[in-house]
Amino acid sequence: MEFKELKIKLIEKNLKFIDLVKADGRSYQYLHKNCRENNKKVLKQLYEILNKK
């Protein structure tokens, strides 16, 4: 699981990264930075939120 794959899933579901940020509750800057660095823990949490939508 990588940030690139997350972006593809967002496009498939017709969502934007900001939609995940709002659902997660953490700051945009924090989430984007950790996703770019491929932080597996953060990416996993965002995948879980995305699968619920």
Results as ranks from 00 to 15, higher is better:
43 L>F: 01
18 I>A: 06
50 L>M: 06
34 N>P: 06
40 K>G: 07
43 L>S: 08
47 Y>S: 06
21 V>Q: 03
51 N>E: 12
1 M>G: 11
23 A>V: 03
31 L>N: 03
4 K>A: 14
6 L>T: 06
26 R>I: 00
41 K>H: 11
1 M>W: 07
51 N>I: 00
21 V>L: 07
38 N>M: 01
21 V>F: 10
46 L>D: 04
15 L>H: 09
7 K>I: 01
5 E>H: 02
4 K>Q: 13
43 L>P: 03
22 K>T: 07
38 N>F: 04
12 E>I: 09
49 I>H: 08
26 R>S: 04
50 L>D: 04
12 E>A: 11
9 K>F: 05
23 A>D: 14
29 Q>C: 08
18 I>Q: 10
36 R>W: 09
19 D>H: 13
13 K>S: 01
9 K>I: 00
24 D>N: 13
42 V>G: 01
36 R>N: 15
28 Y>S: 06
53 K>W: 15
41 K>W: 06
45 Q>K: 14
37 E>T: 05
27 S>P: 02
40 K>E: 15
11 I>R: 12
3 F>A: 04
5 E>F: 00
35 C>T: 07
5 E>K: 12
16 K>T: 01
17 F>V: 01
22 K>H: 03
7 K>M: 05
47 Y>A: 03
43 L>G: 02
34 N>M: 13
4 K>C: 01
2 E>R: 07
24 D>F: 04
5 E>L: 07
17 F>D: 02
30 Y>W: 12
24 D>S: 05
16 K>E: 02
4 K>D: 12
27 S>I: 07
29 Q>R: 13
37 E>S: 09
48 E>R: 10
34 N>T: 10
51 N>D: 14
39 N>E: 14
1 M>K: 08
1 M>S: 09
5 E>V: 03
36 R>K: 15
45 Q>F: 08
15 L>E: 06
19 D>Q: 05
23 A>M: 13
7 K>N: 10
38 N>W: 05
53 K>C: 14
48 E>H: 09
18 I>F: 02
50 L>H: 06
20 L>H: 02
8 I>N: 03
13 K>P: 00
36 R>C: 11
52 K>G: 01
37 E>Q: 12
47 Y>C: 09
49 I>S: 05
43 L>T: 09
47 Y>I: 09
37 E>C: 03
6 L>R: 06
14 N>R: 15
25 G>V: 03
30 Y>D: 01
27 S>R: 11
31 L>Y: 09
20 L>V: 00
